[in-house]
Write a protein that binds this DNA or RNA. Sequence first.
DNA 1: ACTACACATTAAGAAATTATGAAATGCTTC
DNA 2: GAAGCATTTCATAATTTCTTAATGTGTAGT
Lengths: 223, 223
Amino acid sequence: MFQILLVEDDKKIREGIEDFFKTKSDIELHIAKDGDQGMNMLYENSFDLVLLDIMLPGVDGFTLCRELRRQSDAPIIFLTARGREEDILYGYDLGCDDYIVKPFSLATLYAKVNALLNRSKGMVLGKEIKVGAISMNPRTMQVMANEKEIELAPKEYVILKILMENKKMVVSRDTLIVRIWGYDYDGDERILDNHMKKLRKALGEGGKQIRTVFGKGYKMVDE
Amino acid sequence: MFQILLVEDDKKIREGIEDFFKTKSDIELHIAKDGDQGMNMLYENSFDLVLLDIMLPGVDGFTLCRELRRQSDAPIIFLTARGREEDILYGYDLGCDDYIVKPFSLATLYAKVNALLNRSKGMVLGKEIKVGAISMNPRTMQVMANEKEIELAPKEYVILKILMENKKMVVSRDTLIVRIWGYDYDGDERILDNHMKKLRKALGEGGKQIRTVFGKGYKMVDE
DNA sequence: ACTACACATTAAGAAATTATGAAATGCTTC
DNA sequence: GAAGCATTTCATAATTTCTTAATGTGTAGT
């Protein structure tokens, strides 16, 4: 069951979408009638996908999108009458996944929503990520290992997050260093080993889920 | 550097896209002028994203899409003059990620391509190479033999990859040595035998799929 | 069966890579 | 500014992989 948020002030469009999605059993639609309400709902819940109007009372859609992207990678689709190319490109710059110009067909919207849900499956942040006995809630930055809550230092947390987002995949040392310390990092390469050691220790038994792939990097496994 | 395949018969559009993407350093565009050529390229390489025209000489775009989906999760964007809703919905049913109706803006196309590359990063499983009971995922560097995951040392992995990429073909010892140690390698020739031995052992029963061709080299067979 | 050559196996040391521990530095918070 | 924590550096240890070299086994041609 996917949780979708629709932020739209136009009653007709809102109800049209609502009625249509009611017939789709795999989707649960949540509705915000203006930007402020949308913002609150984003903070309080986590969604698998967000449909955003741009011109809204209160906070506008672009701002909502920017705010959402700071905490989540959930797919975002703009639904708007503003079809000028600059608007479209601006939307994509903010990190949206699709931009639909009104008027549009509900069936097409549904197809696009499905394509994106499919594509982003398991990637959505703001939602709990789980790998074996370790789980992480990126929203609250809470990490659990074997039912126990774990306290992690910021760097440890980031490393774990990257590994968990890429579970079963080898993440190279370079990738990790670049993503954590930036392209221009020129300090000691061994720094990663140290954080890795502390992370493993902090995870206790769960630390064994982080595997070293000699000559390549690290990867996270289910057990 | 993302590898993108464009299948388009209309010369004007093709060259327009080609010129535009030439200016984008993160993207390498590969071009097929008709469906048959596109099909061949799909079989021979793995792409990070595919742009497909629908009406094509030879195999049509829908068929290409269907075929591609059988072996890869790479994002697919249809570029077509067919803007009827039934066509669009049919495209999404086949598993495409976006459907752009001609004429379109190159900047918008680029924005959509980027959004999708971003979204699919790390998810696109690349083409899984499979030879008999052994399969390899070059992206995750995961190797499976008889349903079991295999841990390989770096050199072993490279050797296996070369053999699998050339399945059923004999790869000479010289080719292997040059590709792995470079043209100027002047160490012991027996080094290859050693890694080969370890590779075979690591693959267990599957090691038998690597055949020695006396006086020629090695080859990988289905069983 | 003999020979010459090609490949396989084994073991041990070299080289490369990662892990660890301790100390130094930096950053917040009170 | 001192305490407490996080981060970084550095030296050393441990581990894994690579290479060499010696010896054994297999193959093809005569």
